[in-house]
């Protein structure tokens, strides 16, 4: 059963205060591979591993149906630095 971008988005937005959320279907539309960028103040003070575990748990049933799932998690401050670095 394919996973839809909208399902991922609503699950995340219902659970976490979102500053930026980019969901990219990297499987050419078949719903098997997703890559997300998630920026939230709720990540403040949490290690990357803790953030990823949190998102993995939140999207557990969706991830089980996918082939691949990739995530980048930032606090708003870290995201600014990430954008600045990528723009440079």
């Amino acid at each position: 059963m394919p996973v839809h971008t909208a399902d991922l988005e609503s699950t995340i937005r219902n659970a976490i205060p979102v500053t930026v959320l980019e969901i990219e279907d990297t499987s050419n539309g078949c719903g098997e591979n997703y890559s997300i960028i998630l920026v939230s103040e709720a990540f403040e003070g949490k290690s990357t591993l803790a953030r990823h575990r949190w998102i993995n748990e939140l999207l557990k049933s969706e991830i089980e149906q996918m082939h691949a799932f990739s995530q980048k998690t930032f606090t708003p401050k870290q995201y600014e630095a990430y954008l600045a670095k990528n723009a440079a």
Binding site: T48, L49, H52, R53, N56, A68, F69, K72
Partner: peptide, 23 residues
């Protein structure tokens, strides 16, 4: 308690998957 492969351990401690490793 990690849904994807690869998974890395260093000295018996779980480090993370591919995204974490690259980061």
């Amino acid at each position: 308690d990690w849904p994807t492969i690869p998974q890395l351990y260093v000295n018996g401690e779980f480090v993370g998957g591919c995204d974490i490793l690259l980061g």
